[in-house]
């Protein structure tokens, strides 16, 4: 049975499905909070969410709108600070998965959240890397949210805020990183993953009703389409939990489907 849903709902649920039970999730603002909260409520009840500000395993009865929202401090196992959060992020005992978003991404999952144009006199200034550079450096794995547009999926990012697979192949390890790297890119059209050898992005799945050609049209570099499957549509249970429990005010989900 088909249900009406928005691409934001699909993105949050798709990213949530990538979470394994027991993962330690490093969440940022926006969609990543939805993904983490929904995964925890549906299939990964033993996963733990923590924030770079130091809130560890909050109850998340209400959706935080920033990583310093007082809602990340309520019902936690403990409240700490940034240094404690970063000690968890890179901890060798933990499978930490970080959710990141960005303005630009290249074929190897390197992302830009700093500026467009010249760094010293940018055309557009963004907030900066925040903790994303650190998450991309230290976490076990990274899931990236993007809007799929040609101007965002680019051959070369204007500013490399947070490192992915760098130049592909073994280059990330050679640069000094001991682990990590992007696992998936979740967009409004589908899911991209990275080849095990070349570490170049390929289309792994399209959302229902989206064609691989449509994804390619909205990507500014060559994308391997040969491995593309189709994502399952959201179930009624997923949508109900997302809408009623996780974001009832639609603070991040935005307008409801028509």
């Amino acid at each position: 049975m088909a249900h009406a849903y928005t691409s934001k709902e699909m993105m949050a649920l798709t990213a949530g499905r990538l979470v394994k039970n027991g993962d330690v999730l490093f969440a940022g603002t926006g969609l990543s909070m939805l993904a983490a909260a929904v995964a925890k409520r549906i299939h990964a009840p033993q996963s733990v969410v923590f924030f770079e500000t130091g809130g560890i395993d909050p109850a998340l009865k209400e959706l935080p709108l920033a990583v310093a929202d007082p809602r990340v401090m309520a019902g936690t196992c403990m409240n700490s600070g940034l240094l404690d959060a970063f000690s968890l992020l890179g901890h060798r005992r933990l499978r930490t998965i970080a959710f990141l978003g960005a303005a630009q991404i290249d074929p190897f999952g390197n992302i830009n959240s700093t500026c467009l144009g010249d760094y010293h006199r940018p055309k557009v200034r963004f907030p900066g890397c925040g903790g994303a550079c650190d998450a991309a450096s230290l976490a076990f794995g990274v899931i990236i949210f993007m809007q799929q547009e040609k101007k965002r999926f680019v051959e070369k990012v204007d500013y490399l805020s947070s490192v992915g697979w760098l130049k592909g192949g073994n280059s990330r390890r050679q640069a000094g990183y001991k682990r990590g790297g992007p696992i998936a890119v979740v967009t409004n059209l589908g899911v991209m993953k990275f080849d095990e050898q070349s570490r170049r992005m390929y289309l792994a799945a399209c959302y229902p009703g989206v064609s691989p050609a449509q994804v390619a049209e909205n990507t500014g570099f060559d994308l391997d389409l040969t491995r593309a499957g189709e994502s399952a549509p959201p179930s009624q249970e997923e949508l109900t939990i997302l809408r009623r429990e996780v974001d009832p005010q639609r603070l991040i989900l935005g307008p409801a489907p028509e």
Binding site: G90, T114, L160, V163, L166
Partner: peptide
């Protein structure tokens, strides 16, 4: 620190 190798955060000076 071991964060940010090869990123512009380290490579570019403001």
């Amino acid at each position: 620190s071991c964060s940010g190798f090869e990123s512009d955060v380290l490579n570019r000076e403001g």
